[in-house]
Design a binder for these strands. Structure first.
Length: 423
RNA sequence: GGGUAGGUGGCGGAGUGGUCAAUCGCAGCUGACUGUAAAUCAGCCGACUUCGGUCUUCGGGGGUUCGAAUCCCUCCCUGCCCA
């Protein structure tokens, strides 16, 4: 199952100016990712703030729970309030009072998600793609908007993003080989245009060199990059040659990091681990790897064991809002937890709306030390949800995000890899 | 006391001779959610069931009819108006 295996000790790890591997074992690599806003420990999970807010959670809540980086969405912020507003506000960080790092998704996923949702609802897609870019119909007011690779970069720069994603196309699943290749070629052409435009606008030059050439670069304390990072996205559906080729060609173009896209759009999970296995040897070791849109805790763990450093997912917030809460089955501070991590026995979910919690006056999770578990009972959470009290949404989201962040901390701490110099 | 409107499954409220075990909403029970058009969506929600059906329901009783929640008679109850 584990397709990724590198036996290199801490000291001889490669690193680039913005990413440093602090530990790399057969199973888990950990490191530090520097952006213009700060240093983030990898592997990490990004709470999703699509519209410039993690739903029902304040920036202060996020800071308190130890989040270091969040994700915002170009498409949504472009339409409302508009990148000009955010630019005038001093950037997204100031606008939402979040001073950690921010990664912005390019809008590529919306090509897929808005199209398929509109199709289900109205029978027509509302999204059309051509060589230049994508035309969207705003689902809120029906107006047409056009997004190109260059436009996406411009918006993300205006937002003040720390990690900018290239505009890509997510092919649907299932997808024929021919379609997948066509889509991948478009994604690659767009990636190249994104990089060219990014370099022109930022006046910088992204390195396409491989890890061996960058191994001797020193990383200085707090010496943060003065430009955003730009990530490429690997597509290619479930086809091995396409995925590998896409990764190789992206690496040749050269990006600060590499994302794997398209895996959260319906591809069965067995393909995911296959894809990670194909890509692990192709992606440069000294660059961060981001698996877009994943996932369940056990999926994240498997991916970390396959060499992935970065994750984002709506699961903790959305499922929390819908009443499903994540609960440890083993004390996360117990070293015995590690042996059960890969088996997926370490947690369960509880649907707090279930009748059985009506008179359960114990905390959601006795092992959890988030402030929801320290201060409230299942009975109260059950009651808040049943009576549609907005407080429920806040508490449930905080608890679930905390679970994910603790999970990532456990993974990162496994080899005692925190380098406090970079806090 | 007179007049009038009405009594439908936990609640609200459709239905006004057969396709009605009875639209729909709420409440209730359960499930789904993976780069967020999502505080959303789906299923169940009289009883029994070998999940194909079977049985008893639309205030009570009686009647008309091949057939009634729906029509008639009567009783009971509720709202409103007049005394």
């Amino acid at each position: 199952m584990l397709g990724y295996s590198v036996d290199t000790s801490y000291k001889s790890c490669y690193y680039s100016a913005v990413f440093r591997l602090t530990s790399k074992t057969k199973k888990i690599r950990t490191g530090l990712l520097k952006t213009k806003s700060g240093v983030t420990h990898t592997p990490f999970f990004m709470p999703i703030a699509t519209k410039g807010a993690v739903k029902n959670v304040s920036s202060e809540d996020l800071k308190d729970m130890g989040a270091e980086i969040i994700l915002g969405n170009t498409y949504h912020l472009w339409l409302r309030p508009g990148e000009d507003v955010i630019k005038k506000a001093g950037g997204l960080h100031r606008f939402m009072n979040w001073h950690g790092s921010i990664l912005t998704d390019s809008g590529g996923y919306q090509v897929f998600s808005l199209g398929s949702r509109a199709e289900k609802k109205f029978g027509k897609s509302g999204v059309s793609i051509n060589e230049d870019g994508v035309e969207f119909i705003d689902p809120v007011d029906g107006r047409k908007h056009f997004m190109s690779p260059e436009k996406s970069i411009d918006i993300q720069l205006d937002l003040g993003s720390d990690i900018i994603m290239v505009l890509d196309e997510c092919p649907p699943f299932p997808c024929s080989y021919e379609k997948a290749r066509e889509s991948m070629e478009l994604t690659l052409r767009w990636a190249e245009r994104c990089k060219k435009h990014f370099e022109k606008k930022t006046g910088s030059k992204l390195s396409a060199r491989n890890s061996r050439q960058t191994r001797n670069l020193k990383i200085k304390n707090k010496n943060l990059p003065n430009r955003p990072l730009l990530f490429g996205i690997v597509q290619g559906s479930v086809y091995e040659d396409l995925r590998k080729e896409c990764a190789e060609r992206l690496v040749k173009i050269g990006f600060d990091g590499y994302a794997i896209g398209g895996v959260a759009v319906g591809e069965p999970r067995k393909h995911l681990y296959e894809i990670l296995g194909w890509l692990a040897p192709v992606l440069p070791e000294d660059k961060p790897r981001y698996l877009m849109g994943l996932g369940k805790p056990e999926e994240i763990i498997s991916a970390v064991m396959n060499g992935i450093d970065m994750f984002d997912c709506v699961i903790p917030t959305r499922e929390g809002r819908h009443g499903r809460l994540f609960v440890w089955k083993i004390d996360p501070n117990d070293p015995a937890l590690f042996s059960s991590l890969a088996k997926g026995l370490f947690y369960e979910t509880k649907n707090i709306s279930n009748e059985r919690f009506k008179k359960d006056f114990t905390p959601i999770d006795t092992y959890c030390d988030c402030y929801v578990c320290r201060n409230y009972t299942k009975s109260y959470l059950h009651y808040l949800l049943r009576t549609n009290e907005p407080l429920f949404l806040n508490l449930a989201s905080i608890h679930n995000l905390n679970f994910y962040i603790i999970l990532m901390k456990i993974l990162a701490k496994r080899k005692n890899s925190y380098d406090d110099t970079y806090h």
